[in-house]
């Protein structure tokens, strides 16, 4: 069953066309990675998928209903978004931030009920953030903060989870930690997960499908095996890459000018 149907989607910022005639169907429970060079429109696509931007042409259907016909609160019960972590202006604690996820389900003062509290606690535990639940967000490290924002997205309890470069400033251990966490949510809660990422290798390891955006508004959509072809990656990113394979998982290493060629 398709949870997201993108048809003929186009978007431009005035003169500059970003996306053109994008048609993709995303199955419920899929882990999709969106990759591509800078400026190819990854984040724009993500913003279109969460309703922040309106399509210039074409349409996006969420659960067989046009995204534009959703009320903002209704959409927040379908889609949760995780952007790059940041420190809020005011000193909110971890629990306060995660509790905000329940807003789309509650009245104007949004005090959580017993069942809301349960979901909040579960999300804290699932992301291993319960240990600093009472601490201020500003006092955590970047990786810890990113986990808090993922906890908030989980507490939002939506069938779809969108992430914009969730691991860009994290060390290897935390990168893997975040992707394991997402995979876990995909299996246990049958969530559809869409992550924009620069990390082709993590995408190859974790994603069921890959959307590769070209700089010229072309794109390629399919399984990692189909999309992650060496020549294609070289061409799209404009850099020579070396390909490797370990237990059926592909990885790429970019090749710089100063690397020695041992023939």
């Amino acid at each position: 069953m398709n949870i997201i149907e993108v048809e003929n989607l186009g978007f431009d910022y005035g003169q500059k066309t970003i996306l053109q005639k994008v048609c993709i169907n995303i199955n419920k429970g899929t882990f999709l990675g969106i990759i591509g060079p800078n400026g190819a429109g990854k984040t724009t696509l993500l913003n279109l998928l969460c309703g922040l931007l309106k399509p210039k042409t074409g349409s996006i259907q969420i659960d067989s209903k046009s995204i534009e016909s959703y009320h903002v609160k209704e959409l927040a019960r379908k889609i949760a978004v995780v952007r790059q972590e940041f420190v809020p202006v005011f000193d909110f604690s971890v629990t306060e931030i995660v509790s905000m996820a329940r807003t789309p389900y509650l009245g104007s003062f949004a005090f959580p009920t017993e069942s809301d509290r349960q979901i909040i606690v579960e999300s804290l535990e699932l992301t291993d953030t319960a240990q600093f639940a009472d601490r201020l967000l500003g006092s955590l490290s970047g990786g810890e903060r990113q986990r808090v924002f993922i906890a908030r997205a989980l507490a939002q309890n939506t069938p779809i989870l969108l992430l914009d470069e969730p691991t860009s400033f994290l060390d290897m251990k935390h990168q893997v930690g975040i992707y394991d966490l997402l995979k876990n949510a995909q299996f246990r809660q049958y969530k559809t997960i869409i992550a924009v990422t620069h990390d082709i290798n993590l995408a190859a390891q974790y994603c069921d499908e890959i959307l590769l955006l070209f700089p010229d508004q072309n794109y390629k959509f399919g399984s990692p095996k189909e999309v992650l072809v060496q020549e294609q990656i070289s061409k799209v990113f404009g850099v020579e890459v070396m390909k490797g394979e370990i237990s059926e998982k592909i990885f790429f290493i970019p090749k710089g000018n100063y690397i020695k060629n041992n023939k």
Binding site: C50, G51, L52, V72, K73, E74, L75, A76, R77, I79, A80, V81, R83, F86, P88, V89, F90, I97, M100, A101, T103, P104, Q156
Partner: peptide, 13 residues
């Protein structure tokens, strides 16, 4: 206070 993107994502008009 978390920003416009965040608040729209959490269902705030």
């Amino acid at each position: 206070t978390l920003g416009e993107y965040e608040s729209k994502g959490l269902g705030i008009d």
